[in-house]
Design a protein around this nucleic acid. Sequence first.
DNA 1: TAATTCGCTAGACCGA
DNA 2: TCGGTCTAGCGAA
Length: 819
Amino acid sequence: MQEKTTKGILLDVDYVNREEGSAKKSVIRLFASTGKGIEAFEDWNFKPYFYVKAQDLDKAEKALGEAAFGESREVKVKSIERVKRANAENILRLSFENVQDLVAARAEVLGIEGILEKAEHDIPFARRWLLDHEAEPMNGIEIFLEGNKAKKVKIVEREKPEFRVAAFDLETLSPGRFSDPKQDPILMASFAMGKEAKALGNGQVLGKNAKVLSYGKGFGKEVDVFEDEKAMVKGLEERIREKKPDVIATYNGDLFDFPYIKERAERLGLGFAISSDGSQPKLIRKGRDNAAKLVGVQHLDVYQMLRFLARFAVVSLVKFDLESVVNSLYSIEKEKIKAEEINKIWGERKGLDRLAEYCAEDSAYTLKIAEQYLPLVVELCKIVKQPLFEVGRASASMLVEFLIMEKCFETGRLIANKPDDAAVQQRLMHPIKGGYVKEPLPGLHENIAVLDFSSLYPTIIISHNVSPDTVGCPHKECMEKNLAPNKQWFCSKKSGLIPEILETLFERRIKLKRQAKKLDRKSPEFVILNARQQALKILLNSFYGYLLYSRSRFYSREAGSAVTAWGRQYVQWVGSEAEKAGFELLYNDTDSAFLIIPAAKERKDVLAFVEKINKELPGVMNVELEGFFKRGIFVTKESGEGAKKKYALIDYEGNLKIVGFEYVRRDWAPIAKETQRQVINAILQEGNPEKAIEIIREKINALSKGNAKKSELTVLTQIKRPLEKYESIGPHVAAAKKAAAKGREIGIGSIIGYVITRSGKSISDKAQLAEYVNEGNYDPNYYIQNQVLPAVMKIIREFNVSREDLLQGGKQSKLGAFS
DNA sequence: TAATTCGCTAGACCGA
DNA sequence: TCGGTCTAGCGAA
């Protein structure tokens, strides 16, 4: 047979069942973007398998060879193989003709005499292929073909893979209720593609870079007008197929656009066949929600991606509707046309071009955000070796698990099984001790140096070889030399599974950061290197949590608590060394130390201290100077102690850093937050409490006159459970319930924006969803007493100013007594 | 099908 | 009506 090779970018792997003679055979399909669009290649040589641990290999082989599984009692093991694993004995690999046979056999295999355990039985077939071939989705691949079948694959590193990215968006009719695809038509669709988006700058009207499809009369010439909904849906399908994107971005396409268009297409007697194999989008379960999966071409739900990135603090977002996101990322006020207005425009056929512009903007911005964050997500795909579809919706635990499983494969270890529910419950009942937080000395401080351990927990794991497979080794030497303060010790002779992975990630990141430092921050090379190091950082920081995560395959209470025990020891050691060196220790939190530089010392003494500390720290552990600060303020709790996790600093350039205060919390009214920021600024910037008092009086005055705007008064709080499950009805729940009674849908995860109005008795009684509240309808007393004053009193209390001083405008004779 | 622990604070809730 | 306790949410690391 003729041999040839094809090169491309690996996008996706799945499997299909094919006939081979009379047998049903599961066959792997690889989807690669080759320049001619997305092509599929089949690998017929890879079989689904899992492992069992046997009491006696000979007997087990015989029993398994004779066994028949499934309802039909016709399912046989195709082949049995003895394999060596580094961490287990008496292991057999059972291979099957197809996935369904494997599923039937794994359900019953423990019933066979002499089979003690099963392992790696829950790894989906396509993922199994990726694992065993160490292939990297979203990276280059060379496929060696024999005829039309894939024989072998090789990774070809692409420094900067280019993807064809597209986005689409739908507008639907919602007559007095939420749109229902069983009845309500799609009114409009927009489609945006790759190159156009790159030229876009801030402030530009993005809409014109997307094409709008609709039907009926009354449109300008920018819109592709079809005969009816059916023709429009077909038109969108054709456009997508013709443009051959590698990635299709949507905003909430998992839960809205895809399910909607799929249902509509079906009802209209059409398909929406935009997958690379000509199939329809599949709605599959992914965690709590559904996800819309395409074959080959990768569906990236930008909404899901942003949720993911927000969890890792790559983006800082509070509300996730597209308008808020665009505003937060690009400082652009994007127009939102509400459902009722869409209905009206459509019905009266007036303002259709405005609606078209709105629709176009949705897909254009979706595309813009997708392209901006794609480098980071692509790097994650390459590192954890999973497709974009998976990574864009993954949790931290899944990413870590992917990496550990690969390491196991690479080093010939058997992958540990998932815990059963009883084990999960057990784990949850035994939390461990975490980081150390020192009570700060409240008040205003000057000349502060902040030191930080860089990646404290990962570097402890690496430097002390902390891992589930190195804990409590039999060596006396390790017990003496590598003993954690929690009395657990770890082997120092062979490296553990987790430290091995972390060390690789850590070194790669250091190298990338070093390279990136030499580049211009705006250059495309920098963007790629930066995305890569950020991806590594996300992963590095996720491992410690995974050790203590209750559903972890590699849970280790011993390892996890050793990490924090060492962490507490090291951070306190730095503190006491600093005191010995003549600094005053102001505060610690987990991995940081705040030092006051006394008059007799200078910056270079701090640097010398850091250098000395680093010489004494083991392995890759390292302390760095986060910065010098001119002033800082810590406050007192109601109880009189210094409050932890709340402080504000100002550097010598006048930049404020506010931590933990109401100012950074979304569940406080903007008016209270802003006043607090101004007060902190007045005190840190100018050391001027009088000015702070003026600011506060002004705000109180405006509030009591009724001059505050609704937007300054709206408090945001998340609904975290079904409304009827609340034991205690707080203001946000009360407001949500009232809104729900009016027919608003409020589900888990909704962010409630509410205002405390004048009508009602308790605070909850007075709470109403902001959109139902008229400007000016607010309870000034609440906002003064429960919002502004508590937020600012914390701070100016340190200067002996009382509530009365602020409210009555009395003299501040006590002022200054503090310092 | 969800990474961890530490910490602060509000407002409801409950019993005296 | 008061004060203590509990529920709930969010942020720091």
